[in-house]
């Protein structure tokens, strides 16, 4: 009976979790932790809690996904309480407790260590029996399999998504979200399109998108952002100035910019980890290698220069600047 139940679970599409800088070993959390503690394991605790939407420490700033710290503060304590109450039967009840305490003791550590070594599973719209498997290390991109773009660049978990590209096999395509998550066993009816549902277990975040199958592995240039549907995506409301010469400093005004970690995808280059101290403005300098050389006469040109703000909240609409060279 138990084997049959387990096989049923395995028959669902799985999301494979592989180790990152915080190894998911059986004893990842080896000491008790409480508010005020500091250390690498506190940071690992925050990363772990941010894996689940209901125990996320913060939306932005210190402790938020991607900005975890090594300090156990009040936000971390609150997230631990939520975790303990989520798994009350395993953590609180055996100790005669009715409410979470925020203290990461033996029972809490045992539950976290157990979950950290289990692969997240989720059911997608793809049917069929799919074995559990971790992404194969050492695979390099080749030209036989390529991803051009997804049908949309952001969406909530559970979104129906299409990936357009080439070299997809009839069965057993694995779509990778970054290095930690994957949807396996995705079929393709035409070698150029993969249709599947973004698994609900994938945390919010900006993921590279790639495909692996018997033909090889695609590059990781495409991306998809799993968004929190309750948080608005970034928007661009104005650009100042709207035109200018080379080396102009441009200020983008809008909403939904994160303090750090914004990516600016422009027509000419990608600016990584762009800051927005106030969440409403981003400033960057356009440097374009097309100035008129010395001694050369050339008619002036006006170059359309477009950009998008991308962060964990999603993708903005386009902003525009006219570069005068």
């Amino acid at each position: 009976m138990r084997n049959g139940f387990f096989r049923t679970i395995v028959a669902l599409i799985t999301v494979a979790v592989c180790a990152t800088s915080t190894p998911a070993s059986a004893e990842t959390f080896s000491r008790n932790l409480r508010q005020g503690d500091q250390g690498a394991d506190v940071k690992a605790l925050q990363v772990f809690l941010n894996t689940y939407p209901e125990t996320k420490i913060a939306d932005t700033g210190p402790g938020s996904p991607g900005s975890e710290t090594d300090y156990f503060g009040s936000l971390t304590k609150n997230a631990v309480i939520k975790f303990q109450e989520k798994y009350a039967a395993d953590i609180l009840a055996p100790n005669g407790l009715l409410a979470g305490t925020g203290f990461v003791g033996v029972s809490t550590r045992a539950k976290m260590n157990a979950l950290a070594s289990v692969e997240i599973t989720d059911q997608s719209t793809t049917t069929g029996t799919v074995p559990l498997a971790l992404p194969t290390e050492g695979q390099t991109a080749n030209d036989l399999v390529f991803v051009m773009y997804p049908s949309q660049y952001s969406g909530a978990a559970g979104t129906s998504l299409s990936v357009l590209g080439g070299g997809f096999t009839a069965t057993n395509n694995t779509v990778h979200f970054g290095d930690r998550y994957a949807v396996e066993g995705v079929p393709s009816g035409n070698t150029s399109t993969l249709n599947f549902t973004v698994p609900k277990a994938i945390p919010f975040g900006n993921y590279s998108l790639s495909v692996t199958n018997s033909n090889g592995t695609s590059s990781k240039d495409a991306f998809f952002i799993v968004i929190d549907p309750d948080v608005p995506e970034p928007t661009i409301s104005s650009v100042s100035p709207t035109s200018g010469r080379n080396n102009t400093s441009v200020t983008i005004t809008g909403t939904g910019f994160t303090p750090t970690g914004n990516v600016l995808r422009t027509s000419q280059k990608i600016y990584e980890d762009v800051v927005s101290p106030d969440g409403k403005t981003i400033t960057f300098t356009i440097t374009f290698p097309l100035d008129t050389p010395p001694g050369i006469t050339r008619a002036p040109i006006e170059l359309p220069y477009w950009f998008y703000v991308i962060n964990t909240h999603g993708v903005s609409g386009p902003g525009h600047f006219t570069l005068e060279l």
């Binding site: 995808r265 027509s267 280059k269 006006e302 477009w306 386009p318």
Partner: peptide, 19 residues
């Protein structure tokens, strides 16, 4: 050619990588 080449979404045309 600026002024002659029409750009469409997503306008990422001056750098390697985009399809």
């Amino acid at each position: 050619q600026p002024g002659a080449s029409m750009l469409y979404l997503f306008y990422q045309v001056y750098r390697p990588g985009p399809w």
